[in-house]
């Protein structure tokens, strides 16, 4: 009896140890960037490498902000993220509500569109969209990228929000209609407020996807509207990569993502499955 008990406890400790080791392996690349970003510039490319900075330094951050002007691309990223999320949420939540409540063939065509968006490689869409954005004269503008990111996120927003709308009993809007709302005002006044938590999670998701998006940003922006992922990737160079600045920018860039990720932890897998556009 005693032995059995002790054995199971040992087993449990071993399992937990294994899990922590695995988790540490998962954290290692993050720790590498964060720790490296606080090294003095010379230590970043020291050989043999140091695990920890010899002393805490913000040299890399200063270099990144002043010489390489990453701040501006961070601002572009922020504007594009907010703009595209606003458009995707406005159009997507209305369509998501329609998907949740109606079986009309027009509404059902969203199934096909969402499926297409889930399967078609972004790079396939990139070719004609580059031509379209050039034609519209929106190359290297925030608006051009906002329009495209909104489109990339729209199928996802429709899908995820329709799930939340389905969870709201239809009786609620029928009651609102009896009380004098029409179907549209029932949506804006009654359903939207109830769905707010779910829609907020959807918006966070859309924002993260736009913030992290690289392929279209790379194709559609180059100087004025360049986003942070593009700016960071430009620091990679065969001959002399700006490793210090890159780790600093990478750290700063990732902090907001991690905060948002913790807020929506429980929904992340669901969201990924529904077709987060990842390149």
């Amino acid at each position: 009896m005693m032995i059995g008990l002790r054995k199971s406890r040992l087993w449990e400790i071993a399992l937990l140890g294994g899990a922590l080791l695995f988790a540490l392996f998962y954290l290692a690349p993050f720790l590498t960037i964060v720790l490296t970003s606080f090294k003095p510039a010379a230590e970043v490319i020291a050989s043999p490498p140091r695990l920890l900075p010899s002393h805490f330094s913000i040299e890399n951050y200063l270099h990144m902000a002043s010489a390489l002007n990453i701040g501006r691309s961070m601002w572009n990223s922020l504007v594009v993220t907010f703009g595209s999320t606003a458009i995707a949420m406005a159009l997507g939540s209305m369509a998501g509500y329609a998907v949740a409540r109606s079986h009309s063939p027009v509404v059902r065509s969203f199934f096909l569109l969402a499926l297409l968006a889930r399967v078609v490689p972004p790079v396939t869409l990139a070719i004609p969209i580059l031509g379209m954005i050039r034609w519209a004269g929106l190359i290297d503008t925030q608006i051009g990228l906002i329009l495209v990111h909104a489109a990339l996120n729209l199928p996802f927003v429709i899908w995820m929000s329709s799930g939340f709308f389905q969870d709201i009993p239809a009786d609620l809007e029928e009651a609102a209609i009896v009380d004098g709302c029409n179907r549209f005002t029932a949506f804006t006044r009654i359903i939207l407020p109830v769905a707010t938590p779910g829609l907020a999670a959807t918006a966070i998701f859309a924002a993260m996807l736009s913030w992290n998006e690289y392929l279209f940003a790379l194709l559609l922006t180059n100087v004025e509207a360049k986003t942070a992922p593009v700016a960071v990737s430009e620091l990679l160079n065969v001959y002399s990569s700006e490793w210090g600045a890159m780790t600093a920018a990478g750290t700063l860039f990732t902090i907001p993502v991690l905060i948002l990720a913790i807020i929506i932890q429980r929904r992340i897998v669901e969201g990924m499955a529904m077709g987060a556009v990842k390149g």
Binding site: I33, N212, P229, V257, L258, K278
Partner: peptide
């Protein structure tokens, strides 16, 4: 485990 799912693939690739 959620962290790698959220980080930008390009930042992970840089790391």
């Amino acid at each position: 485990l959620l962290l790698p799912l959220m980080i930008a693939p390009i930042i992970a690739a840089v790391a």
